[in-house]
Design a protein around this nucleic acid. Structure first.
Length: 486
RNA sequence: GCCGAUGUAGUUCAAUGGUAGAACAGGGGACUCAUAAGCCUCAAACAAUGGUUCGAUUCCAUUCAUCGGCACCA
């Protein structure tokens, strides 16, 4: 039965170019969006950019650029991913949009009305050497690592706080009632433990005098909304809250229907996505998300990618060299959905040659060469839903559990089987002794290839179309689909 | 330090209380429709110790190793 499915990624912070980790998240969400769409569901897929906050403010000033111009430029780099990665999202949220700003302020008012926002002195750790505030995790032995000879000062500042602690038992109840609220289960366990231990209210504003780049607090221009509070609200502003409640409730139905959207996020976002945000929604008297998929990180040569280490893999450059579908393929199949995965250019090339050039690409060439040489007319095919054949349901069940790698494994197993069948039946010999029988064998191969093309729709949409077109025109590719890389 | 996880062939993964499966990489072979691709075949692994058991890679404990989280970092 068709229904409405809302998917959203996190909004990446625009203080750097898009990195491979975000490409992973958005491609995973896209695969699922395309999959559900294929099944006949109505899908709304949201992504966007998070454009407020101190780091962006400082980076823009350092670059000598106007704030809005600076974020516009970065936002456009992220928007390019739509073409680069062939994304099917329906909405691109920018947290500097007027609509989003108004929504964040309205959300703040709701929490305030609920009595969950209050002012409190906040103690800031400040390194005089850097002239910057420091977080606990930035300090080593209580001192700034850059200025270990200087004492870290404690400065007090009045901020607004959100009454996170009030929602401890409600959150625990939510986790208890919905064991699939967070995927994978180990992450649910992690957040459950965190919440059980006890929650501290968190600050949700900064002094405008120090940090003017953000959304103003309603009725108090001396404070700016802390980026967290602002950015998370985009998940519901994208689907119409609060101005178009009818639309909103269609995509984010009341709690009795098991909640709203499906959110994708990295493991660094666990707390914000699975505890803080649901608590904020509870405060505003809105249902929690339906499900949150927490993916791992992509490392390179065993380490976090960083510019200083020189091990950054740029998804855009990767696409330039290998093509969109090759990158989508790699992210779907060779990255563990829930754990960290080490990715190097060598591994990428290895997977590309073994599975796309020698595997899928070569299979298309050999089957379609036989077909175009020995068949009079194209083999009829329809772009049926992928839940056909005995393996279709297998692909589906893996996908619905976010096991992208296992879903796509099923397709590659089929590719291997077809290669083996060609070797076994030798249709290229059969046609010379028994043309009718040889043609039958070739028609069967084309049917199987068509099935593979159908399964590829969510993962490699353009490749799927290419194969389908070749079948419909009964011709072999003039250029290899995936040229082998030396 | 606390909490959590992981440790299986060169590499990346899988399964299982009773002869450890696969893929990629590597060796060998027969073929030719195909992108020097494909097919067949060979070699190759349960971190260590102890316990429970008729029997453990699988359960338990300890050790070692690796990784992640530990609050305002978006």
């Amino acid at each position: 039965m068709p229904s409405k499915i809302y998917l959203t990624t996190t909004l990446p912070y625009v203080n750097a170019d898009p990195h491979l980790g975000f490409a992973l998240e958005v491609v995973e969400a896209d695969i699922l969006a395309r999959y559900y769409h294929l099944l006949g569901h109505e899908v709304f897929f949201n992504t966007g950019t998070d454009e407020h906050g101190a780091k962006i403010y400082q980076a823009a000033i350092a670059a000598g650029k106007k704030l809005q111009a600076y974020v516009d430029e970065y936002a456009s780099r992220f928007q390019k991913l739509k073409t680069v990665l062939d994304l099917s999202y329906d909405h691109f949220s920018r947290t500097t949009d007027q609509k989003h700003i108004a929504t964040a302020q309205e959300f703040w008012r709701r929490c305030q009305t609920a009595g969950d926002i209050y002012k409190k002195n906040y103690r800031v750790k400040y390194c005089v050497g850097c002239e910057l505030e420091k977080t606990e995790s930035e300090l080593t032995n209580g001192r700034c690592s850059l200025h270990p000879n200087k004492e870290v000062e404690i400065r007090k500042e009045e901020n607004y706080f959100f009454r996170f602690s009030k929602y401890q038992s409600q959150l625990l109840k939510l986790y208890e009632e919905r064991p699939d609220f967070v995927i994978p289960a180990s992450r649910l366990h992690e957040i459950k433990t965190f919440v059980t231990v006890g929650l501290q209210d968190f600050s949700i504003s900064r002094l405008t005098a120090k940090m003017p780049w953000g959304i103003s607090i309603p009725d108090d221009p001396t404070h700016t909304m802390y980026v967290w509070f602002d950015a998370l609200v985009n998940y519901i502003s994208a689907i119409g809250w609060p101005n178009d409640l009818k639309n909103f409730e269609e995509w984010w139905p009341p709690a009795r229907h098991l909640g709203g959207g499906i959110q994708f996020a990295g493991k660094d976002n666990l707390r914000q996505q699975t505890a803080m945000w649901p608590a904020m929604l509870m405060s505003a008297n809105l249902p929690p998300p339906k499900q949150i998929m927490i993916h791992g990180f992509i490392t390179s040569d065993g380490q976090k990618m960083s510019k200083s280490l020189g091990n950054v893999i740029d998804p855009i450059k990767l696409v330039e060299e290998y093509g969109t579908d090759a990158v989508r393929y790699f992210l779907a199949r060779h990255v563990q959905p829930f754990e960290d995965t080490d990715v190097t250019l060598e591994k990428f090339k290895e997977a590309y040659n073994a599975n796309l050039a020698n595997g899928l690409g070569n299979l298309v060439s050999r089957v379609m060469k036989l077909a175009s040489d020995y068949l009079f007319a194209p083999v009829a095919m329809s772009r049926t839903v992928l839940a056909t054949g005995k393996d279709g349901p297998l692909v589906s069940s893996h996908l619905e559990r976010y096991e992208f790698n296992q879903a796509i494994d099923v397709i590659w197993q089929k590719i291997g089987e077809l290669d083996a069948i060609i070797q076994r039946d030798e249709p290229y010999k059969t046609v010379k002794t028994d043309l009718a029988k040889g043609r039958e064998q070739i028609v069967a191969l084309v049917h199987n290839l068509a099935e593979i093309a159908n399964w590829l729709i969510p993962f490699m949409p353009a490749t799927s179309v290419t194969i389908t077109d070749l079948i419909r025109q009964n011709r072999a590719p003039t250029q290899p689909l995936f040229p082998r890389k030396i």
